[in-house]
Amino acid sequence: MSATAIRIHAADAAVTVISNDSSVTQWSGRYFGDWWNATAAEPTEESSGFVVLSDVDPKAYAAVARQVTSRKHEETEYARLPLLVSEDRDGTIRAFSSSDKLAYISEPHAGRLTILGTDAQALAVATARLAREVVRGLLLRDGWTLLHASAAVIDEGAVLTFGSKGSGKSTVAMILARQKGAELLANDRVFIRRDESGQLQVLPWPSAAALGLGLLDALNLYDIVRERVQAGEELHPTQDQRVTDALAAGQREPLWAPNGKEMKVQLHPDQFPAWFGIPLSAGARASALVFPSIVPDAAPALADQARVLTEADFMTGETEDRYPDVFRLIQVDGGGREQDRARVLAYLDGLPQHTVVLGHDIEASGQFLDKIINIA
C-alpha cells in the first residue's frame, strides 16, 4: 500500500501527516480543512516542520506494546483511556493503549511522532487529535494563547463570545453565521496573539462542533441534519447514539442526559460549508467581545451587570486534563505562557464589549446583535 500525506499549516506552525492508509490522511484533511489550510503533500519524512507517521501495522503495534511492558513504565490516562508510558534516556517516549489498540513513539527532539494501530478508524481519530496537539504546542511556544470562546468573522473582524457551557457562545456564533453571513472561525476555543501592529490576531481551533437539537431547529438547520443522517451521511464519532436516535425520531426539543447535561449533535467541521453553506475562516483580527446569557422567554437586551474578561477565560493545562502532555508536544502551559496571556488580556480590554441577555427568538436576537456590534 503506497503512502499518502497531508500538510497542515496554521500561522507559522506546520505538521505533515504521512500514512500507509489513505483514510487516515483523508480524515485529517477533512478535520482541519480550510481552518488550518490542509493540503495534499509528498509522503516524505524530509518535509519541513514536524512529521506525524501514522500506520496501520498490527505487528509494529505489538512490538511497541512489548517494549513498554518489558521495561519500567507508568500508567496514566489519555483521551480518557488507560495508557502505559515509558521513556528512554534520549527522551524518546513509547506508549500504548490496549483499549483502542494504539501505540506511540514520540521523539520531540527530532520533530517526529509515530502512531501505530490495528484499526484505521481509531488510528485516524488519534492522528488528527495528536497532529492538532503538535500545532498547539508550536503556536503556544511562539507566543499564542488559547481562549475559551466561540468566534464568527464579519468584514475580517472576529466577534469573540465568552461564557461557560450553556451560556450561549455557540448560539451567538451560529446566529451571526446563519443570519448575518459571517464566517465561522471557532465553536469553542480560539488561539489569539498580538501582532507587531498592535492588533490581536485570532486563529481557529479545529474540533467537532456540538449543537443542541433545539438550537438547530431555531436556526432552521434541523431538517438539513436529519435528512443528511437519514441519507446515510455520518456525524462525528463522538456522537452519542441517543442523539442519533432522537434525530431519527424527529425530536426537536433539547435532549438531556441523566446528569443534567444537554446532549448535542456532533458535527464535522466540513459539514458547516457542505450542509449549511456556512464558510469557515482561517483567521481574523479580534474586533468585539460578547458575553451572553440565555433566558428562554426574555427579550434581547443589555444585561444589568457587565461581565469582564478574566484569566478564567483562558484555557490552561488543567482544563485540558483529557490530553496531558505525555508525548512532550506542548512543553508549556496548555493555554499559553502566563506573560502572553496577560499581554492578550490587556489588549482585549480595549475592544468593544457587550454583556447581553438573549431569548429563544433567534430572529430577534439576530437583530439585537446586529444593532449592538454594528454589523454592516
Rank of each mutant, 00 (worst) to 15 (best):
I6Y: 07
R7K: 15
V15A: 07
T16V: 05
W27I: 05
S28F: 09
G33Y: 07
A38V: 00
A40E: 15
E46H: 14
S47Q: 13
S48N: 09
S48F: 06
S48Y: 02
F50D: 09
D57N: 15
K59D: 14
A62K: 11
H73K: 06
E77D: 13
Y78H: 11
Y78S: 05
A79C: 02
A79K: 02
V85F: 02
D90A: 11
G91P: 08
I93L: 10
K101L: 15
A103D: 08
E107L: 13
P108M: 00
H109F: 11
A110Q: 15
L116R: 10
G117V: 05
T118R: 15
D119T: 07
A120D: 11
V125M: 11
V125K: 02
L130A: 03
A131R: 00
V134G: 07
V134C: 09
L138A: 13
L140H: 02
R141C: 06
W144V: 01
T145Y: 03
L146R: 05
S150P: 00
A152Q: 06
E156F: 02
V159I: 15
L160K: 03
T161P: 07
F162G: 02
F162T: 03
S164N: 11
K165C: 07
S167C: 10
K169D: 01
S170E: 01
S170N: 01
Q179A: 11
A182W: 12
A186I: 13
D188F: 05
V190L: 13
F191E: 04
G198P: 13
V202E: 03
P204Y: 02
A209W: 00
L211I: 14
L211R: 06
L213G: 06
G214E: 12
L215I: 13
L215E: 09
L216N: 02
L216P: 10
N220I: 04
L221Y: 01
I224R: 05
V229E: 12
E233N: 09
H236Y: 09
Q239K: 01
Q239H: 08
D240C: 06
R242S: 12
D245F: 08
A248L: 15
P254E: 14
L255A: 04
W256L: 10
N259T: 14
G260S: 05
K264L: 07
Q266L: 13
P269E: 01
W275F: 14
S281E: 03
S281G: 09
A282N: 14
G283I: 00
A284H: 04
R285C: 07
A288D: 06
P292L: 01
S293Y: 01
A301Y: 03
D304W: 05
A306W: 05
A306D: 14
V308P: 00
V308Y: 10
L309W: 07
A312M: 09
A312E: 15
E318W: 04
D321S: 12
R322S: 14
R322T: 11
R322M: 06
Y323C: 13
V326P: 04
R328L: 12
L329H: 05
V332S: 02
V332A: 01
V332F: 01
Q339G: 01
D340A: 11
L345P: 06
Y347E: 15
Q353K: 14
H354D: 05
V356I: 06
V356N: 02
V357P: 08
G359P: 00
E363S: 09
A364S: 11
S365F: 04
D370I: 02
I372K: 09
I373K: 04
I375T: 08
A376I: 12
